[in-house]
Structure formats: C-alpha cells, structure tokens
C-alpha cells in the first residue's frame, strides 16, 4: 500500500523560499500580539489599570482639597502604586500563560529557537502596557479636575517638572508589566510568580520601612536632624527596589538617608529588575528541555 508520489509533483517550497517563509522576529511579535489581545484577562488588566488610577487619584485629590494649601498636582501620582497591580498581573499572565497551559508545545514547535518568543512577548507586553498606561495617566489627570475646579485652581500640565512626572508614571506602569512578565517567564507558574511579584513590588518596601520605624527611637530621630544609620540602610535598600525606582521616576525624589539616583538612576534600577529575571528566563529556555 505504499503509494509514493514523485517528489517533483509535491508542492514543496524551494530552500531559498523556505527561509523567507520561516519565523522572523517581526512575525513572532505579530503572533504574540494576537495572543495577548485575544485573552480577556489582558483587557481586564488594562481596564482595571485605568479605573484604579482614576479612582484613587480622584479620592486622594478630593480628600486633600479641603487643605488650605491644596495643590491638585500633589495628588497626581497618588494612584500609581496600586495601579501597578493590574499591569503586574498582566505581565505574569503573559509570562506564565504558555507554560501553565501547555500552549508552549505549540509555540516552541513553531519557533524552535525559543528566545524570539520571549523577546516578542516583551515587545507585545510593553506595547499593550504602554497604551493602558497612557490611558491611566490621562485618567489620573482628568480625576484631578473636579477638586481643582471646586477650589478654582487651574491645572497646569506644562509647569516645571510635570511633563516629566507624567512620563515617569507611564514608564513605571510599563516597567511593572515587564517585571511581571520577566518573573512569570522565569518561574513559569502563575501563583508563585504573582506572589513573588507582589512581595517585591508592594509588600517588601512597606514591610522594610515599617520595620525600620519600629527599630528606631522616634524621639531620637526627631531630636537630631540626621537619619539614624539603621533607617538610612533600610531606605538605601528600598531605593534599589522597584518601589524606590518608581518614586524616583515619578519625581518624588530620594527617601531620606538614601543616595539620590535621580530619575535616570531610578529608570536603570527598574530596567535591571526587568532585565535580570528576563535574562535568567532566556537562559533557562535555551539550555533546558521544555516539558
């Protein structure tokens, strides 16, 4: 029953054409963009980012609008910390989605070199998070309008440093999504990845600051102008966490007793938090079997 057809009859592309028909980085990016935008969770994450940003900024501005020296711009970044959570989860879901569902088999059979998939996921996630982040920042600005109007204060977005703060907010949200992606791609399972990501981004900085507060004597601290060494050490550590990088990027400046790395320094710290786990994930992809 062995029916052999002469190979000339078969529609097989020639070697030269085959090369141009294979997976290029641009094609893999297009594929990952289709994947990311075809999951409901991605759109939920984007919507929540905008909603959290708007709601918290609005509430913060309303609460402080009764202060005599109220400056609506002072509330601009108040929603960023928690608006980071949906992009973080989005990134984790993109990073773990292949491995936790078995879809990786399909993906890595199509792209056997594997690393282009991780690179494409980074591009797709950054682009999607950028769109969500820009909307979230616009929402935060709009959320300031009611309280500013109630006090008759004009909103001046061109004022010194404000454009930079707005840009910083966008970068923080995009960077957080990429941090989630990197941790997800490295750890491969969603629950451990979300846990680690939330610990690093939200819990650790707060816990460290609280612990330092407990350890230091409040009376001594207020008596002398300088920051106690223990607290300075904790603040230095916090500066090198994503939270510290975020406050540098959003123009809140350095915490006391810690080196002031500036906005560029903050950007570099956040970049390192993305690049290191991403590199480890790429190494794991390259050197190990995917099962």
């Amino acid at each position: 029953m062995t029916a052999t057809t002469p190979s000339s009859l078969r529609t097989r592309p020639t070697a030269a054409r085959t090369t141009s028909h294979g997976p290029t980085l641009a094609r893999v990016v297009a594929s990952e963009w289709t994947k990311l935008t075809s999951l409901r969770s991605s759109w939920w994450a984007a919507a929540l980012t905008v909603a959290v940003s708007a709601a918290l900024t609005y509430l913060s501005a309303q609460a402080s609008s009764v202060d005599p020296g109220f400056d609506p711009m002072g509330s601009l970044t108040s929603g960023v910390l928690l608006a980071q959570v949906p992009p973080l989860v989005l990134g984790v879901l993109v990073g773990t989605g292949e491995h936790s569902t078995g879809a990786f088999r399909t993906t890595f059979v199509a792209v056997p070199r594997r690393w282009p998939v991780l690179a494409a996921q980074t591009v797709a996630t950054a682009t999607f998070a950028l769109l969500a982040a820009v909307l979230a920042v616009v929402a935060a600005v709009l959320a300031l309008v009611p309280s500013a109007r109630s006090r008759g204060i004009p909103l001046d977005l061109g004022a010194d440093g404000t454009p930079r703060v707005l840009g910083g907010m966008v970068l923080v949200l995009v960077g957080t999504a990429l941090l989630g992606l990197a941790l997800g791609a490295l750890l491969r399972r969603p629950v451990p990845a979300v846990t680690v990501a939330v610990l690093v981004v939200l819990v650790l900085p707060v816990a460290l600051v609280l612990a330092a507060d407990l350890a230091s004597d409040p009376l001594a601290a207020s008596a002398s102008a300088s920051v106690p060494p223990a607290q300075a050490a904790v603040n230095t550590v916090v500066t090198f966490l994503p939270a510290g990088a975020a406050s540098l990027l959003t123009g809140e400046g350095a915490v006391e007793g810690a080196p002031d790395l500036g906005a560029w320094g903050g950007g570099l710290v956040l970049t390192a938090w993305v690049a290191v786990p991403l590199a480890l994930a790429a190494l794991r992809l390259r050197t190990r079997d995917v099962v």
């Binding site: 070697a15 085959t18 994947k35 879809a103 990786f104 059979v109 792209v111």
Partner: peptide, 17 residues
C-alpha cells in the same frame, strides 16, 4: 528554516491556551 512548513505536529490536545 520554516518548521511549520516542513513538519506538522500534534503532540497533545492540551497544547492550547
């Protein structure tokens, strides 16, 4: 150079998100 055009693979029905 173009794996999908050379080999069609179905390993497991659960290879889909």
């Amino acid at each position: 150079p173009a794996p999908l055009r050379t080999v069609g693979v179905m390993l497991d029905a659960r290879s889909v998100h």
